[in-house]
């Protein structure tokens, strides 16, 4: 290639991107320049390969996957413009809030403290008196003599008297136990 100035023009000529006059000038040059003809031939070859990329079949599974993802995202909601919050969106909202505050200010009653309600303390719980239980018979040891050191306790030989009191004051049960023989 001896004509670098023609390269860009030849690149456009290869796909018909030159105007009529430019194309005629290029064809005239190609008739005269073997190097440029070879260069143009190489361009046609590489461009044919570029164009062939558009003939490739797209994998159906790749398309189906995209379709599925999009429909899953889109399904169930109506199309709407995406609302992107910008700082100036806050201006009308703030102005509207101030206007509302000014309009409503005199009408808002002063906040009174809540009335104090005297609450009486709850009555003390009634103490229940215990129900008198029936008296059980009392066991009373009687006639027990003190022990004398160095001597054999006399109680072992004397009978033990056990007195039972019943509900009836007139009835008393005496139980005499003979400690020697363990008889009563």
């Amino acid at each position: 290639m001896n004509c670098p100035n023609w390269e860009r023009r030849l690149a456009l000529y290869a796909e018909g991107d030159l105007s009529g006059r430019e194309a005629q000038e290029t064809e005239k040059h190609l008739r005269q320049c073997a190097g440029c003809r070879e260069f143009a031939g190489g361009l046609k070859e590489s461009q044919a390969a570029v164009r062939s990329l558009g003939e490739e079949e797209v994998a159906a599974i790749a398309l189906a996957s995209v379709r599925q993802r999009v429909l899953a995202e889109v399904g169930g909601r109506k199309p709407s413009r995406r609302f992107a919050f910008r700082w100036w969106h806050a201006v009308p909202v703030g102005v509207a809030a101030m206007v509302m505050a000014l309009l409503l200010w005199p009408r808002i009653p002063a906040v009174e403290p809540p009335p104090v309600v005297a609450i009486a303390p709850p009555p003390a719980p009634e103490v229940l008196r215990p129900v008198p239980l029936p008296e059980l018979p009392q066991v009373v040891e009687t006639a027990r003599r003190p022990r004398v050191a160095g001597t054999k306790p006399a109680a072992e030989s004397e009978p033990l008297l056990v007195k039972f009191f019943t509900d009836d004051p007139d009835v008393v049960i005496y139980w005499i136990i003979d400690q020697k023989e363990g008889k009563s």
Binding site: A11, L12, E15, G42, S46, V50
Partner: peptide, 17 residues
């Protein structure tokens, strides 16, 4: 765009060469 496509075509040709 014309400048970009001519440049791209030339680069691809040189790469292929």
């Amino acid at each position: 765009v014309r400048s970009q496509i001519s440049s791209a075509r030339l680069k691809i040709k040189r790469f292929a060469d």
